[in-house]
């Protein structure tokens, strides 16, 4: 069968008008790949850093909580000891 070629009267400058990104990538494929890879690596690094910071924050919060509990315990002990001391003072004065 005879196959005639397609004829197209749309001006070439309109047919070849690509979006900016496509035009940028055309002939700069290596740059585009490097750009995309660096974006991916950068975002991964940021995610990891944020994760580490978050973990540190949780650890610190736990430590603070523990310290607070310890402080409460010491404070209640201190109150009790103060009471005992007062009682002993009163007894010594009476004798």
């Amino acid at each position: 069968m005879i196959k005639l070629k397609n004829v197209n009267l749309i001006p070439k400058e309109i047919l070849e008008r690509d979006p900016f990104f496509k035009r940028f990538c055309k002939g700069r494929r290596v740059y585009a790949v490097v750009l995309i890879l660096s974006l991916v690596v950068g975002s991964l690094a940021q995610e990891i850093t944020l994760g580490i910071l978050k973990w540190n924050l949780t650890q610190s919060k736990r430590k603070i909580q523990e310290a607070k509990i310890k402080l409460n315990q010491l404070q209640s002990q201190h109150v009790q000891l103060q009471k005992i001391k007062d009682q002993l003072n009163r007894e010594s004065l009476q004798t």
Binding site: L4, N6, V7, N8, L9, I10, L15
Partner: peptide
């Protein structure tokens, strides 16, 4: 989007 314009007799 018009992607091709061909002469009618063709």
């Amino acid at each position: 989007k018009l992607i091709a314009v061909e002469p009618k007799p063709y």
